[in-house]
């Protein structure tokens, strides 16, 4: 009997945690589907007359078309660029003698870059990009994100690559494959799931970034979705409906991606320190 009531308490605590975790999502989504009048009409947990007007307003009045296009373009090029730069480097690190000086130093540097808070970097970035006339351009954002994300790719990919048994690759080498073809035929197929997870984490990191995009851009020519969301808040009278809708647009694609890689979450967030 005591055992059963303890189990009931555990489930009760878990349900409470779920409600706490999920309620803000519910509140934002339902607000985004309400008319202005209903939003101010008191607390309703379900929209009485659901509408998509708020979402239409984002694209008609608040430039979300360009914001979305900028985000997609910047994310696509930065993720591709950092995977191209980072994956070979990660492979090279796993091929260096284990615990060698170079391997150790390389990983420390990469880890340091990842740990630098964005506020440390945005002021110099701003000054540097201003020098080259790259402020408020998508190219400027792509260059910054590509560089920063390369460190993340190296860390995560070397943790995935290190799991591929050396024997398999060495067997291919003994069979007469060159290192390059062994990489192409053996290592990359085995690393594909890790590569996919790394790519998705990179998409999440870059799509979600706010501070860098906020400081480097100033008009819808280059502003991304998170910056677009924040432009809705600066106004004197906040339009709650469109703001909630903007939040939904900002969150939805990422939640889908995040659920795909949730198996690798711990590794992605701790850079392989914990699996």
């Amino acid at each position: 009997m005591k055992r059963r009531s303890r189990r009931a308490l555990i489930y009760l605590a878990l349900v409470a945690a779920q409600v706490f975790a999920l309620f803000p999502f519910w509140w934002m989504i339902t607000t985004s589907l309400k008319h202005q009048v209903e939003i101010f009409g008191g607390l309703e947990f379900l929209p009485q007359a659901p509408t998509l007007d708020n979402f239409a307003a984002l694209f008609d009045r608040y430039n979300f078309g360009p914001f979305l296009a900028n985000s997609l373009l910047v994310v696509a090029f930065s993720v591709a660029g950092s995977l191209l730069l980072g994956t070979p480097a990660a492979y090279a690190l796993t091929k260096l003698p284990t615990e060698s000086w170079l391997q150790r130093q390389a990983l420390i540097v990469v880890l340091l870059v990842r740990m630098l808070p964005a506020i440390l970097l945005v002021i110099p970035f701003y000054l540097v990009l201003a020098n080259y006339g790259l402020l408020n351009t998508r190219l400027g954002l792509i260059l910054v994100y590509t560089g920063l994300n390369t460190g993340f790719v190296i860390w995560l990919m070397q943790s995935f690559l290190a799991e591929i048994p050396r024997d398999i690759e060495e067997a291919a080498l003994v069979d007469g494959d060159s290192r390059l073809s062994a990489l192409r035929r053996i290592v990359l197929p085995l690393a594909a799931p890790g590569l996919a997870a790394t790519a998705i984490f990179s998409v999440i990191n870059i799509y979600n970034d706010f501070l860098i995009a906020l400081t480097m851009t100033s008009t819808p020519d280059a502003q991304t979705i998170p910056v677009g969301v924040s432009t809705l808040i600066g106004k004197i009278q906040i339009q709650w409906g469109p703001m909630a809708a903007a939040g939904v647009v900002g969150a939805l694609p990422i939640i889908v991606f995040a659920l795909i890689v949730q198996r690798h979450f711990v590794r992605g967030l701790t850079l392989g320190a914990v699996k």
Partner: peptide, 24 residues
């Protein structure tokens, strides 16, 4: 399922988190 529900908050952009709590 318990796990997914609990980790959902940290997946969304911090800006969106700000919006959610502004609404609250």
């Amino acid at each position: 399922l318990w796990r997914i529900g609990i980790i959902l908050p940290m997946t969304v952009a911090p800006v969106v988190v700000g919006v959610m709590w502004r609404l609250i």
